[in-house]
Design a protein around this nucleic acid. Structure first.
Lengths: 342, 342
DNA sequence: TTTTTCATTGTCAGCGCTGACATAATTAGA
DNA sequence: TCTAATTATGTCAGCGCTGACAATGAAAAA
């Protein structure tokens, strides 16, 4: 293996392929880019030459000439490694399908300013488009900066300024209504929400949906106790601490907790256990995301499933597929998954 | 927001900055690239012009001219979203620090051939270097392909052909020895290993280390029951199924299980619970990685901590830092974290 | 047949930058 | 003082590709 430096073997170029196939470089370019107007015979000869040389398009040259980078950027907030991994999985799949590459920018929620991260990081990558997840998808300063630079973006699950861009979302409201009804029917009456960070607008929409649904059933939305987690190293730990605080200050204790996500819910379960209470007998717990750990903790966690990877896939498709932008917003289904904690 | 297409505003170029600062484009380039031979006065004027224009280097042009892409590639196997997220976090931090960008290639362990993924995906990105995690870091065909293309790479925790490349690893053997001693001292005598995929060489080294350490204590390495997980949608689920199989075929039951990673360990705990046994009374369980969920399950999981993010950081540093390659291999510390399951 | 159309292929400038090299300005040394 | 070494800046080709446009040839229409 070699240190970074001049490539050991000069990769084949369009000209190399063209010389072998006996055509012009431009015609090879046409084949590579799937241009229609190339005769079958020529195409075959060129494809053979491409195989022979192992030719791969030089993205830098292509980008420079076409003034496109074929890069799609994304911020990766550290709210949940499951959410993060799923987003990546869906986005990567779509990128592969549409001939793009993913550029990821780390974003340490709380410590960094997204706009700074954009200015100092992603902006320099000259992406063709960005996909934005919560909470950065609702950061107005960031959106302003992107609009200023004329950089297209798709938002995943935005909670504010819904008309501002094309967006891909999940029907969170519906599943939250199902959850509230499920808890209500089980006789739960004293609700608490362990909420996510205040700038996570989608989560706040869920909180509102929770209260609305409760009101519709004759419950008291104003009586719902709400604590917001303080972000720290581990979000589950943050959930545990927030729940501890909430429970210590509650009399009577709530009998149902709706957590920001599964990790927070698991932290909440740890807190309940610490205070000598049991789930679901004393307190029911519900999470959000249906991450794989929801099935593995004990008792298995009731949660709301949303198609995270598909959300990201669709987001990339919107920008990468030439026909994508005409599609308009996309709303994917969610569903309540009842397990042992409720 | 705009569909992908011609940029709305033409970004400033070196020439634009040069014109404002009254110097040549080359001198601006020198400032941008932190070349030393630029007078302070000139540098200041140019920096002001850069601020004024909002100039950002065009990576495509820079890449083309310098024949470097400033991209570092990585495969992202779906073995553990925690591991994945940590690797990413460390690598992204280092990339930021050294002026590189990360390109991630999805790799669906089991379904895909890594070499295909490389040929069809990452190779086209023309990365300057790759960082390889298990299990792909031990894929000889991939390494052959990389060597053939003269593409530098750093391996993280390789388990085979250790001399073949620069590598960053964790001292897994030492922590495994501590674990075995810990289990032995607690009176455990019937051991089982829920092992990872067969191509994960680093994990196999751990298995061997486990048996060696057992032998050193006077135990019977040959008596260690070993099952390998079958990869499926969820690795924890794979761990649960493998453990179920193992326990159903065991008489007497093992009294200690060492799992491939924390997620598998959690699956194992679920299986033990399903069979009506308890952790740690009947069976002790230990994982690997010290992921955040290890602290949240009940009982909290005994596991081996390894600095995953730092591993990736160092790997990127080796290729990105001009002085990196002279550093040679790097071995980072691990430690046994004893919690409630043992 | 001649003209028009259209599918196919070619030509060439130039995207924005950097490496190699040349030159000018300054400083150190003799 | 003058020359040599050093520092600061400039010139320019060309990285590999694509967009705009031109040219060619063959089929369709007149």
């Amino acid at each position: 293996m070699n240190p970074i430096g001049p490539a050991v073997k000069r990769p084949a170029t369009l000209d190399d392929v063209a010389a072998i196939a006996g055509v012009s470089a431009k015609t090879v370019s046409r084949v590579v880019n799937r241009d229609v107007n190339v005769s079958a015979a020529t195409r075959e000869r060129i494809e053979a030459a491409i195989r022979e040389t192992g030719y791969r398009v030089n993205q830098a040259a292509r980008s420079l000439a076409a003034s496109r980078s074929f890069l799609i950027g994304a911020f990766m907030p550290h709210l949940s490694s499951f959410y993060f991994a799923e987003i990546f999985r869906g986005a990567a799949k779509a990128c592969r399908q549409y001939g793009y590459h993913l550029v990821l920018e780390e974003f340490d929620h709380g410590a960094d300013s997204v706009v700074d991260r954009y200015e100092q990081g992603l902006r320099g990558a000259h992406c063709d488009a960005l996909i934005l997840t919560p909470p950065v998808c609702d950061d107005e300063k960031l959106l302003d900066a992107l609009d200023r630079d004329g950089l297209p973006y798709v938002r995943i699950a935005p909670g504010k300024q819904l008309g501002r861009s094309v967006a891909v979302g999940a029907d969170e409201r519906r599943a939250v209504e199902q959850l509230v009804r499920h808890l209500w029917d089980a006789g739960r009456r004293r609700f608490a929400i362990i909420a996510g960070p205040a700038d996570h607008a989608a989560a706040m929409v869920r909180e509102r949906a929770f209260c609305d649904a409760l009101g519709a059933l004759g419950g008291d939305p104003a009586g719902v106790a709400l604590t917001r987690i303080e972000l720290n190293e581990s979000i589950a730990e943050a959930g545990r601490i927030a729940t501890l605080d909430l429970l210590r200050g509650s009399n009577p204790l709530p009998d149902a907790i709706f957590a920001f996500n599964d990790e927070v819910a698991i932290g909440a379960m740890a807190a309940i256990r610490e205070l000598g209470r049991s789930v679901p007998e004393d307190i029911a717990v519900a999470g959000f995301d249906d991450s794989y750990i929801a099935q593995l903790v004990w008792p298995p966690l009731t949660t709301i499933h949303q198609p995270i990877a598909d959300l990201a896939f669709q987001a990339v498709r919107l920008v990468a597929d030439p026909e994508g932008f005409s599609t308009g917003n996309i709303l994917l289904p969610t569903r309540l998954v009842v397990r042992g904690t409720t």
